[in-house]
């Protein structure tokens, strides 16, 4: 066979080759000193890199996890976190599939975060070496798979120790906390929002409701400003819902236009993370608005340009 590429050598060391390929590679490495040297070098890098990563042990549990009273930051984070659950549920995004979602704050010229880079190309096979001497036996021994690591595997991750009862109780308590908060939000989403007429929406907003040009709204709802990240918590929100909730246009009329102008879109959007794509809050004609939707980032940006 030809010389194995870098990825194949790494897969050999990580125990990720299928038996037939592994046998072929081992046979080749056993008779090719150049490849044996490459395997040994890769193994050395693997050993040292894994030890470096192990240096980064997580510091001890934070104060709140040890039972201390939660500070203001914790409370704020918890509220923001609960709000994010509400928003995720409200937009119906997460119920539509199990794909990992991304909260995207869209800004002009920013690349949507949904796009991952293309897969790394495989290195071309090395060539030109001539088998001269058998390699050291250790260089051809692949590391076992992660789920079946042997004790003599030096680069294996340390097995996770069994949880102590106190740790287990702590994790259970925190899991219950997460579940309880999520359940409250899921069970009572309607409590925060109610359907209103367009006229009442105009009255609550204190100005003409903004609409997405070319789209027919399903309905208008109103809810508290605390329900959406980036919104002014002291003002009611008016939400125009399109496409059965797939796209929502949240809007508020700032108490003072001076304050609204002072606040940049980027600053206003810092809390907007809830699973679906979310545009930055922006102010146009005295109304602040943001669009949330389970649609591609580019589509959401285009919708934002059509707000009238």
């Amino acid at each position: 066979m030809s010389h194995p590429d870098e990825g194949t050598i790494q897969a050999l060391l990580d125990g990720e080759l299928e038996p037939a390929e592994r046998a072929r590679v081992e046979t080749h490495v056993g008779s090719c000193s150049a490849c044996a040297a490459r395997v040994a070098e890769a193994r050395a890098f693997q050993l040292e890199a894994d030890r470096l990563v192990e240096v980064l042990a997580v510091p001890s549990l934070p104060a709140r996890a040890r039972g201390a009273s939660p500070g203001r930051r914790t409370v704020v984070r918890t509220l923001a976190w609960a709000a994010s659950i509400l928003l995720a549920v409200a937009v119906g995004y997460w119920g539509r599939g199990a794909e990992p979602g991304q909260a995207v704050v869209l800004q002009e010229g920013e690349r949507p975060s949904g796009g991952r880079d293309a897969a790394a190309p495989m290195s071309p096979p090395a060539s030109g070496s001539t088998p001269t001497a058998p390699p050291p036996a250790t260089t051809t021994a692949p590391a076992p798979r992660a789920e079946a690591k042997s004790a003599d595997q030096p680069v294996a991750n340390a097995p996770r120790p069994a949880l102590q009862p106190a740790e287990r109780d702590l994790l259970d308590a925190r899991a219950n906390e997460v579940a309880a908060k999520a359940a409250r939000q899921v069970d009572e989403p309607a409590a925060a929002w109610r359907v209103v007429s367009m006229e009442e929406g105009v009255r609550l907003l204190g100005g003409q409701i903004r609409l997405i040009d070319g789209l027919a709204p399903d309905r208008v709802e109103t809810g508290p400003g605390t329900a959406v990240s980036g919104a002014d918590p002291s003002l009611p929100l008016v939400r125009v819902i399109y496409a059965s909730g797939s796209v929502t246009l949240d809007q508020q009329r700032p108490a003072t236009q001076v304050a609204a102008r002072r606040e940049t879109a980027a600053e206003a959007a810092t809390g907007a993370t809830a699973g679906a794509n979310v545009t930055a809050w922006q102010e146009r004609g005295g109304i602040r608005f943001a669009i949330t939707g389970s649609v591609p980032a580019d589509s959401l940006r285009a919708l934002g340009a059509r707000v009238r």
Partner: peptide, 9 residues
């Protein structure tokens, strides 16, 4: 197929 190369690099 790209994971090995990525990890090696």
């Amino acid at each position: 197929g790209a994971v090995g190369t990525t990890l090696s690099r």
